[in-house]
């Protein structure tokens, strides 16, 4: 019973590493009454120390590189990183830009990719639900 606890109580911390805010708006939309992520137990928290899931958006700019690494390390185990949007998976429209340090998986290990520019809120919720299967494998 305790092993299934993660399935229905995922706490999410959202960090934007320099993107255009499109994916951030879709993440917030996923928590509104229309899509209502809270009925699955998903809650947005204010500090990575409370979080199980790191929702990372945007390509990683030069200034955000070490901050992203620090936030990743400050999240307690077991944790899952979800890269939301095309910029996170492959630097999207910012390909070969001078200030981009690469897609997210060059900085921190990513477990789930949610592609789209921006992805629909249902896709984001589906990605967070897939994160449970990853967490199950990590224990």
């Amino acid at each position: 019973m305790i092993k299934n606890a993660f399935k229905r109580a995922l706490w999410v911390y959202h960090i934007n590493t320099g993107g255009c805010n499109g994916c951030d708006i879709e993440i917030i939309a996923a928590l509104t009454p229309r899509y209502d992520a809270e009925r699955f137990g998903i809650k947005l928290v204010g500090s990575p120390r409370h979080a199980d899931v790191l929702l990372v958006t945007g390509p990683v700019t030069a200034k955000m590189e070490d901050k992203l690494k620090r936030v990743y390390e400050q999240t307690p185990d077991p944790k899952v990183v979800i890269a939301v949007g095309n910029c996170g998976a492959s630097t999207g429209v910012f390909h070969n830009s001078y200030s981009i340090r690469g897609p997210i998986d060059k900085i921190i290990p990513v477990d789930v990719y949610v592609p789209g520019c921006p992805p629909r809120p249902e896709a984001i919720i589906h990605g967070i639900a897939k994160a449970w299967e990853k967490l199950e494998g990590k224990k």
Binding site: S47, K67, R70, E73, Q74
Partner: peptide, 17 residues
């Protein structure tokens, strides 16, 4: 309890040093 690794125990300042 936690196992010590890296910068885990630094205070959370939105990622800043």
């Amino acid at each position: 309890s936690a196992h010590k690794k890296g910068e885990q125990a630094k205070p959370f300042l939105s990622g800043n040093k």
